[in-house]
């Protein structure tokens, strides 16, 4: 009986090894084969044909962070044509380790550019990038390229749009209480929220801003209940960031208040409630990277999508009758941020 067991384990092990070897010998093909079959030729001055791969932590239709990069790729394709820009993606790579494997695999499979769209991927990128000197990597959202000349970094100055939203919110609130629903107090979310609070305080320091981080990116019910709580505490204007805020938007809508959006244009979601959204247009920074790449620079620079360069745009909801003075204040804030007369004080 004892022998049986040993034999059995050996058989299993052997099986596994056999499968491994059997797969190894007959030429490396399937996954390497597809988009890289035509090696792109370096053609300075003109945009080379690019195969781009995106790795992102949530879903491409999350209505938030990942959708923003996906939409940017569609915009790029629109502009350059599908023949020139061809892209693939791996979404929902919330497991950092899986994302690392995806980044490495795409780089090894002949993609010219791999976009790691999640600040948590940085550590992996730092390890992988040196192994693929021909491939450009882009890491967002951050400013850190690790000093490597094939990593681009990009981030959004989300506090700028947050500030503009905050200015408008401060002028629209009647109760002088504003609610904010955040996920985890970090990264893009924190930057946006801090900018928003700064905008409110700069407009009217007496307004009370209730900020709640629910420490979760997916619990829609808890986000909704946070909104209910803030509304009960007097909030009549709200904002929030990350994909679970759809629950909160619904609640402020029910109560006839206003909502300010970020990451994606949320006006379609609640046309009578969303006043304005800060929208990311990553294609602006991606175009710069692509341009540099065709000139032979594979990385080493960092980009910021902001109001000045159009990487960040305020989308005002045409369905809402925004009072003139509010609109003027918003435009003044945008102009002030662009020409530098407004400096946003972050905590």
């Amino acid at each position: 009986m004892k022998k049986t067991k040993i034999i059995l384990i050996l058989v299993l092990m052997l099986m596994l090894i056999f499968t491994a070897c059997a797969q190894q010998t007959p030429v490396e093909e399937p996954d390497v084969e597809e988009p890289s079959s035509e090696e792109p030729v370096e053609e300075p001055e003109e945009i080379e044909k690019l195969s781009i791969a995106i790795v992102s932590p949530s879903s491409i239709n999350d209505f938030a962070f990942t959708q923003s990069i996906y939409d940017a790729m569609l915009a790029l394709q629109e502009e350059y044509g599908e023949d020139t820009i061809d892209f693939v993606y791996s979404e929902n790579m919330f497991i950092v380790d899986d994302a690392a494997a995806a980044i490495r695999d795409y780089a090894a499979s002949g993609y010219n550019m791999v976009i790691a769209h999640g600040s948590q991927y940085g550590s992996s990128l730092q390890e992988i990038a040196p192994d693929f000197p021909e491939v450009s990597f882009a890491w967002g959202t951050t400013v850190d390229t690790f000093g490597q000349d094939n990593i681009y970094a990009y981030e959004a100055a989300s506090h700028e749009g947050g500030y503009v939203n905050g200015v408008m919110a401060a002028m629209l609130t009647e109760s002088k209480v504003i609610g904010v629903v955040g996920p985890v107090e970090t990264g893009d979310a924190k930057l946006y929220v801090d900018g928003f609070v700064a905008g409110v305080k700069a407009t009217d320091p007496d307004i009370e801003v209730l900020v709640t981080y629910i420490n979760n990116f997916s619990d829609v019910a808890l986000a909704a209940e946070t909104a209910e709580t803030q509304i009960a505490a007097g909030a009549d204007v709200m904002t929030g960031t990350a994909q679970m805020v759809v629950g909160a938007i619904g609640k402020i809508q029910e109560n006839g208040g206003y909502w300010f959006g970020t990451q994606a244009d949320q006006a379609d979601f609640a046309p009578d409630t969303v006043v304005a959204s800060q929208v990311y247009h990553w294609e602006v920074v991606l175009k710069e990277m692509i341009g540099l790449r065709s000139e032979g620079t594979l990385g080493g620079q960092s980009f910021v999508a902001n109001l000045a360069n159009g990487g960040q745009v305020m989308a005002f909801n045409p369905n809402i009758d925004i009072p003139e003075e509010v609109m003027e204040a918003a435009q003044a804030a945008i102009q002030g941020i662009i020409d530098g007369t407004i400096t946003i004080e972050l905590p």
């Binding site: 932590p57 919330f94 497991i95 950092v96 380790d97 999640g118 550590s123 996920p183 979760n216 990116f217």
Partner: peptide, 18 residues
């Protein structure tokens, strides 16, 4: 052995990989 640091994405699985 793998990450050489801890990172969180606000859920359990980002780090543990489920």
């Amino acid at each position: 052995g793998v990450n050489f640091r801890m990172i969180t994405d606000g859920s359990t699985s980002g780090f543990t990989g489920r």
